[in-house]
Computed example of a mutant assay.
Amino acid sequence: MSVIKKELVVIGGGPSGMSAAIEAAKRGVKVLVVDANEKAGGQLFKQIHKFFGSRAHGAGVRGIDIGKKLLKEAEDLHVEVWLNSVAIGLFDNKQIAVETGTDEKNKTVRIVEAEKIVIACGASENVVRFKGWTLPGVMGAGAAQTMVNVNRVLPGKRILMIGSGNVGLIVSYQLMQAGADVVALVEAAPKIGGYAVHAAKIARAGVPIYTRHTVLEARGEGRVKEATICEVDNKWQPVPGSEKTFEVDAIAIAAGLKPLVELAAMGGCKTKFDPILGGWAPIHDRNMESTCRGIYVVGDLTGVEEANTALEEGRLAGVAVAESIGKLAPEEAAKLKSETWERLNGLRSGPHGEARMKAKERQIETFQELTGVSQ
């Protein structure tokens, strides 16, 4: 089997991957993006809501429009993109096995050897296991969001949402915009986990939010027909007599995300467990370079955050790759990286981001301890 050689291969065409590809391509790096989907852009094309924050981070702009802008910029820079392509292997010599195609009979595997690699494969949804959780109609909130915002299909008409983080709150509102009835939102913690502005929108629409509650059981023949929730005590155990039953035809679970660390681990990148970041995540330095030199890790793979932080981490890696290949002067690279870190620190400031900032600092400190390299 012949080996295809590339300067930079980006695995994952979401916000962090595309921004890394663009920043590197701007400096003349030849870039290949490998993405498993029919269209690059990742989570951005599910995000029909307007972004918050500063003008520098797309405040007032919808995620889908940011995604379109990224794809146009990548196209103008002649970034090569392989769609319907999955990286199924990553080896010590920076060779990547990529399976391409949608038809099982016509799928092919190609070997790509990269001078530099950026892994941006994102995160997967956590599940909540309860009696009846395998019934059709029980799904992750991300799956429900994909159905309604990308495929224009309602996952159900009466939906119970589990989890009050920003994903649960935002997807609930988007489901209502599409015509679904969100019968209730259930949160096991004593208070709502996401931004108050999102919670207020669904509360104003009449959706009851049950904190200190969890789902007890889903029932139905062939698919979910009803769900029972109950209150939990201080030890997270069900409180007898507190059960409430709802007629539903879908249950969406927004119980957080965990980094898709398997490919990075396969390539030999050291990982560390941190619950703030969603679990196991690759250790990296301030350039987003992993413990495997020449392999960079960005976005939700390095710890679950928001789209804007993913975009900035991608920019960091793209600049660092261009510098390491010799297509960007160290002085200019240092300036660009300093500006990007300033924006990242701004995004992570405040009560919701401070814990993540400290977790990221711990990752960088661990990198320095393991490698003896400080920056």
Rank of each mutant, 00 (worst) to 15 (best):
V127K: 14
V127E: 15
V128F: 05
V128S: 03
V128P: 06
R129M: 02
R129F: 12
R129V: 03
R129K: 05
R129P: 05
F130P: 04
F130E: 07
F130A: 00
K131T: 00
W133P: 04
W133Y: 07
T134F: 11
L135E: 08
P136G: 05
G137Q: 06
G137C: 08
V138E: 03
V138N: 02
M139E: 08
M139L: 11
M139S: 05
G140V: 06
G140H: 13
G142E: 04
A143S: 12
A143G: 11
A144V: 02
A144G: 13
T146W: 13
M147H: 05
M147C: 03
N149M: 02
N151M: 12
L154D: 09
L154P: 12
G156I: 06
K157N: 15
K157P: 10
I159L: 04
L160N: 15
L160T: 12
M161N: 00
M161D: 07
M161W: 06
I162N: 09
I162A: 02
G163V: 14
G163N: 00
S164W: 10
G165A: 09
G165H: 10
N166Q: 01
V167M: 07
V167G: 10
V167P: 03
V167A: 07
V167E: 09
L169C: 11
L169W: 15
L169G: 01
I170D: 09
V171F: 14
V171D: 06
V171E: 06
Y173K: 15
Q174S: 11
Q174I: 02
L175C: 13
L175D: 14
L175A: 12
L175R: 07
L175F: 14
L175I: 11
M176R: 07
M176Q: 12
M176D: 01
A178K: 01
A178T: 09
A178N: 00
A178R: 00
G179P: 12
G179H: 14
A180H: 11
A180M: 04
A180W: 14
D181V: 15
D181M: 13
A184I: 15
A184Q: 13
A184C: 11
L185N: 11
L185D: 13
L185M: 15
L185E: 14
L185K: 03
V186H: 08
V186M: 00
V186D: 06
E187P: 00
E187N: 06
A188E: 10
A188T: 06
A189S: 04
P190Q: 12
P190D: 15
K191I: 03
I192Y: 14
G193T: 00
G194T: 10
G194F: 10
G194C: 08
Y195K: 01
Y195F: 09
A196C: 13
A196T: 15
A196D: 15
A196M: 15
V197M: 12
V197Q: 08
V197S: 02
H198E: 12
H198V: 02
H198R: 03
A199Q: 11
A199K: 03
A199R: 00
A200L: 01
A200E: 00
K201G: 03
K201R: 04
K201N: 09
K201P: 02
A203H: 00
R204Q: 02
A205Q: 01
G206P: 01
G206D: 01
